[in-house]
Simulated assay, not measured.
Amino acid sequence: MSLMLPSESPSARSLVGVADDLFAALRGESAALPRATSVVLVLIDGLGAIGLRAHAGHARALTAGMGKKDVAVSVFPSTTAAALTSTLTGAWPGEHGLVGYRVLDRSRDVLVNQLTGWEAEGVDPATWQSMPTVFERARAEDRPAFAVGVAAYESSGFTRATLRGAEFVAAGTPAERVETAFDLAERHPGSLVYCYLPEADKAGHRHGVASLAWVSALEEIDRALSRTAPSGVGVLVTSDHGMVDVPAHRQVVLEAEHLHGVHAIGGEPRMLHVYLDPGVDVAQASARWSEDLAGLADVGTREDAIAAGLFGPTVTEAAASRIGDLLVVARGNGAVYDGTAADQRGRGMVGQHGGLTPEERQVPLLRFGAFAR
């Protein structure tokens, strides 16, 4: 079975275009956004547009005036490593090369966790992700560039891959991060300021979307963003992906008999990268996996995915080498697990993402401050 993107409006905005919109607004050249003296990009990790609308009563500041067109489409896979990097480089996963949560570095035969495994797995952020970041682009235009986030992330490999060129400023609560971002934008005219809020994503993974913990995180974020932006500062609020809750009865567990000819499994349970042993016939393996997972997941080859444009219009040689021989995209609210893996902690996650559902791929794109309609 071939993998195909769901139908979307030709006018749907992609996260990949957010960076260009912000620079154009700073220059007064944007057709989408008014001119701004400085810009703040707030990224709420894990907040889908559908989930936000369903809980509008808990997010009155965020949803006030939110219209049908105030959405963007995330990339594939709909996961943080791929989508955040696309937002912060303006490049598709097929260009920047972060094509999943965990991918195989074929040159060293090592699975690389692209969020937390850079140091442990010996990956150089500057060469693994070589596309210029929005912060490097800002510095090239002599614009101040800042990234406001959680202190624990300041020196991570993923930060060095995606926030290069930014002055990192740590702040504690969501309210403190937003306040810091607004203050930086006001004090540094012409600046680009990024503000990262991961609380909803963490609560969703652990407890599920619409859990009390997730709603509490959403309310805290909403309170933080209820403050008025400084005069002239344009604020754009978006996300990298949404989530679906995966109940226990929708977990598909692959045992050893299903994994014949498989060298390694990467990705994540909503979107697996399956790397085959040398010599295994890819077409036959794809047909077998499609039959085994009929009605549960869609299965396609790397060539299927590239031809369908899932990773963007251009796929570099480096990015292609990291894509699995097979891709397995769970349907509905299911997830597919490697039952032979030593670490089964992932099966405890409730909220998950990575797939092609609207809940995962549609994200809010909200305008405040000088950008407000």
Rank of each mutant, 00 (worst) to 15 (best):
M4T: 13
L5P: 04
S7K: 14
E8H: 13
S11D: 13
V16T: 09
V16G: 01
V16W: 02
A19D: 01
L22S: 01
F23D: 01
A25W: 00
A25K: 00
L26H: 03
G28W: 02
A31I: 00
A31H: 00
P34N: 09
A36F: 02
L41A: 06
L43P: 00
A49N: 11
G51M: 09
G51N: 14
L52K: 02
H55C: 13
G57D: 14
G57Q: 14
A59E: 05
A59I: 05
R60P: 11
R60I: 08
R60A: 14
A61S: 15
M66R: 02
K68N: 10
K69M: 02
D70S: 09
F76G: 01
A81L: 03
L84V: 13
S86T: 14
L88S: 07
E95H: 02
H96F: 04
G97Y: 01
R106L: 06
T116C: 07
G117L: 12
W118V: 05
A120F: 12
E121G: 04
V123G: 09
P132K: 03
R137N: 04
E141N: 03
D142Y: 08
P144A: 12
F146V: 03
G149V: 02
Y153K: 13
G157P: 05
A166E: 02
E167D: 15
A170V: 07
A171G: 05
A175W: 02
R177Q: 06
V178G: 09
A181P: 04
D183H: 12
H188L: 09
L192N: 00
Y194P: 00
Y194T: 01
P198V: 02
D201N: 07
G208M: 04
W214N: 08
W214C: 04
I221S: 02
I221W: 12
R223T: 15
L225Q: 06
G232S: 11
G232F: 08
G234H: 05
L236K: 00
S239I: 03
G242V: 14
M243T: 05
P247L: 13
Q251T: 07
E257S: 15
G261T: 06
I265T: 06
G266C: 11
R270I: 08
M271V: 13
M271L: 12
H273N: 13
D277K: 15
Q284R: 15
A285R: 09
S286Q: 12
E291N: 11
D292E: 15
D292N: 15
L296C: 10
A307K: 01
G309P: 04
F311Y: 15
V315I: 13
T316H: 08
I323K: 05
V329E: 00
V329K: 00
A330R: 03
A330L: 08
G332H: 14
D338E: 08
T340E: 07
T340L: 07
A342Y: 06
Q344L: 12
G346E: 12
M349Y: 14
V350G: 12
H353L: 11
H353R: 10
G354K: 03
L356R: 09
P358E: 10
Q362A: 09
V363D: 00
F368K: 11
F368W: 10
F368C: 00
